[in-house]
Every structure is written in structure tokens, then in C-alpha cells.
């Protein structure tokens, strides 16, 4: 039963969405809407599961005083402060007339978002600029024709997106300057490759989804 019931649940959930696409009438559209609501509720629980698991790991790390245990403590404090502030702002917002949301501009939660969350996430992603530059220095070698194409496309797009690109090609008519080359690459050859990849991904997802819904793909149930 530990294997059969999950397979039946997967089949029903998947089939409802597929059938509702082709037959958007009752009872399938109602079932699809209900499953969508369940899915949204489950998404919250999935995040909760991840967060609780994180807290469990951090709490164990702190209690055992293992290596870098203080980082676990910082994670726990950061988590609880954010949750407490968000919960407080949400409850206060409900009692306001008219009701306000927990993340409206001016709330404490919004302050945390603007001054803690955004700088940290933006800087984390900004750091990738250095790592990408370092990786491209090592990987971008014109070893063969294909690698040269990759190098040229990357080079032209990067240069075409900054003012210096047009400055270098300033002697050419405006329609032939670097930014126009970058735009042409993005609009046509890039779109072509992108479309081939997207169609390939779609075909892959359709076949994999069918395997999952029909219970042919059941590797997730291994170990039971």
C-alpha cells in the first residue's frame, strides 16, 4: 500500500489537470480549481517543512557545539526575528481600517526586506559577476569553430549592451554599430537556438510527465 496509494494519487492529480485542459467544464474545471487551491496550501507547508528542517539541523548544531555552531544560532535568530516581525505586522494590519498587508511600504517587515533581505540577495547575485568573469577567462578559448561562435556571441552581446561598444564602432553608420549587432544576435540567431531548446524541453517534459502520471516512472518511491 505504501507504493500503490502514492501512484494512484499521482495518477488522479495529473489526470485532472490534463483532462481539465481539454474539457474545461464541470466537474473537471471544479476539480482543477480545488487541486490548484490544495497545491497553493501544500506549497506553504512545503516551505514550512524546509524551514523547520533547517531549524532542526541548526538547533542540533548549536546543542552539540559542533564546528561553526554560532552560524546555526545566527540562522535561528534571523529566522525567528523575521517571522515574529511578519506575524506582528500581519496581525496589526488586520485590525487596521482599511486592513493593510504585512509587507506594505512602511511596515517593519518591509524595512527588513529593504535593508536586510534585498542587499544580501542582490550582493550574493552580484558576486557571481566576478566568478563568471573568472570562469569565462578559463573556459572561453577559441579551440574550434563552435567555441569561437560561443565566444563571439558572448563578446558581441556584452559589448553591445554597454556604451563603449557603440563608441568603438562610432565610425560606422548607426545601423551597423555594436548595439545593433547585439540586438540582431538576440533577436534572430539567439531566438532560433532558444526556440529549438524550448521545443526540446517541452517534448522532454511531456514525455516525462506522461511517464510520471501513468506510474511508469516511480524512482521516487524507491526505498520503500
Amino acid at each position: 500500500m505504501k507504493r500503490e496509494i502514492p501512484l494512484i494519487i499521482t495518477f488522479i492529480a495529473g489526470t485532472v489537470f490534463v483532462v481539465a485542459y481539454f474539457v474545461p467544464h464541470s466537474p473537471f474545471n471544479r476539480a482543477e480549481s480545488l487541486f490548484n487551491d490544495w497545491f497553493a496550501i501544500l506549497a506553504a507547508f512545503a516551505i514550512w517543512l524546509g524551514a523547520l528542517n533547517l531549524l532542526k539541523i541548526c538547533a542540533l548544531k548549536v546543542s552539540r557545539r559542533s564546528k561553526d555552531w554560532y552560524l546555526g544560532f545566527v540562522i535561528i535568530v534571523g529566522f525567528f526575528v523575521t517571522v515574529a516581525v511578519g506575524a506582528y505586522d500581519g496581525v496589526v494590519g488586520l485590525s487596521n481600517v482599511p486592513a493593510t498587508a504585512f509587507r506594505d511600504p512602511g511596515t517593519n517587515f518591509d524595512w527588513i526586506y529593504r535593508n536586510v533581505y534585498t542587499p544580501l540577495s542582490a550582493t550574493m547575485f552580484a558576486m557571481l559577476a566576478f566568478f563568471v568573469a573568472s570562469a569565462s577567462y578559463r573556459a572561453f578559448r577559441a579551440r574550434n569553430f563552435q567555441a569561437t561562435l560561443l565566444l563571439l556571441a558572448g563578446f558581441l552581446v556584452m559589448l553591445g549592451r554597454v556604451p563603449v561598444g557603440d563608441l568603438i564602432t562610432g565610425f560606422l553608420p548607426p545601423a551597423y554599430q555594436m548595439s545593433q549587432w547585439a540586438t540582431w544576435i538576440m533577436d534572430f540567431p539567439q531566438t532560433a537556438g532558444q526556440r529549438a531548446i524550448m521545443i526540446g524541453i517541452a517534448l522532454g517534459i511531456i514525455s516525462t510527465s506522461l511517464r510520471v502520471i501513468l506510474g511508469i516512472e516511480r524512482s521516487r518511491l524507491e526505498g520503500e
Partner: peptide, 12 residues
């Protein structure tokens, strides 16, 4: 801090 605040942000 980023990990803790992110987890808390999405949790709430």
C-alpha cells in the same frame, strides 16, 4: 543572516 531571513521571509 541571509539564510535565516530568507527562510523566515518565505515562511511568513
Amino acid at each position: 543572516i541571509f539564510i535565516g531571513v530568507s527562510a523566515g521571509y518565505w515562511f511568513i
